[in-house]
């Protein structure tokens, strides 16, 4: 299922500016660093290279883009992507409408409840996706077909399953601005609640909400367990179906999927960095929000 949300330790700067910062931190030399980092880079690059090579050469050792051509013209590809897009739209909409007001409210009215809500948002990590699926199938079996028989149920569940990351993202965004002061300033200038929310709070949370959108979208486009076990042909489910029949096409697709995910996540980190620059706050959580494993 999911992986982690790192502790919110702030990256505290060194107390003093020193010349020639010691290159031998922890008493380990440069050679240690060189060996470790080289091995790491090799380990992480080889599968990428192998995938790209495989998708282009296939088993027949002749350079061709036919695998890429084949997948994009497959009608199943289009329909599975469409299903995933619809689910993503639903997941994103519910997530934003559910999490943003809650986070703003708790920071404003009950800051003492922030930890409680954070804990609740982490609960989905305790229940593996497979177990959630089992529970959904038994507990919600009697729900109308329009929910259980359609990807609607996936969107509803994905909101919960992605909550550890989306909540953390919006919450840390809200934590880095002083909502209370903003609201007081806005109200003292005569704004109504609604206009305060729309004109003052939301613009300040824009980058946090954008990350949350990317995170839930990436989650939807990666989630396999729940979708396949509930027999919905989402993009990742179709990927496996193709994989069992046509190997080089599925690898080509995986390359596309990996590149798309990495692109989206890199965008999140860039947004995160820009937010840091703007607010001057360096939080490790900017990185931790982007940790999902799509299991």
């Amino acid at each position: 299922m999911a992986s982690i949300v790192a502790s919110e330790t702030e990256l505290v700067g060194k107390p003093s500016i020193k010349f020639g910062e010691s290159e031998k931190m922890f008493g380990l030399g440069r050679r240690f660093r060189f060996i470790v980092l080289t091995l790491t880079i090799v380990f992480f690059l080889i599968p990428v290279l192998a995938s790209v090579r495989y998708s282009l050469l296939g088993n027949h050792n002749s350079l061709t883009l036919s695998a890429y051509g084949a997948i994009f013209t497959d009608p199943e590809f289009i329909s599975s992507v469409l299903v995933s897009v619809k689910i993503a739209v639903g997941t994103v909409a519910i997530t934003i409408l559910l999490v943003t007001p809650t986070v703003v409210w708790v920071r404003l009215k009950r800051p003492d409840l922030v930890t409680v809500l954070e804990t609740i948002s982490l609960l989905p990590m305790i229940v593996p996706a497979v177990v959630v699926t089992l529970g959904v199938l038994t507990a919600f079996a009697s729900l109308p077909n329009i929910i259980m028989g359609s990807p609607v149920i996936l969107a509803l569940e994905y909101v919960v399953l992605a909550l550890p990351y989306t909540f953390r993202s919006i919450d840390s965004g809200a934590g880095s601005i002083d909502i209370k002061t903003l609201v007081e300033a806005s109200k003292s200038l005569g704004s109504t609640w609604l206009s305060t929310m729309v004109r003052v709070i939301l613009p300040n949370l824009r980058s946090a909400i954008t990350s949350a959108i990317f995170l839930s979208t990436a989650f939807v486009f990666g989630e396999f367990a729940v979708a396949s076990l509930m027999s919905f042909t989402t993009f990742p489910v179709w990927l496996v179906q193709v994989g069992s029949a046509r190997a080089d096409e599925s690898v080509a697709l995986s390359v596309v999927a990996l590149l798309l995910t990495w692109g989206a996540l890199t965008l999140i980190s860039i947004i995160g960095f820009q937010r840091q620059k703007r607010t001057g706050i360096r939080r490790s959580s900017t990185f931790s929000v982007s940790i999902i494993t799509k299991e």
Binding site: V255, T266, I291
Partner: peptide
């Protein structure tokens, strides 16, 4: 750190296929 954030998310199906290719 940014790369780790990205790779930590590389679970699932695409990862399995990349390793089959490797």
């Amino acid at each position: 750190m940014a790369a780790s954030g990205v790779f930590a998310n590389t679970g699932g199906v695409p990862l399995a296929f990349s390793f089959i290719a490797t």
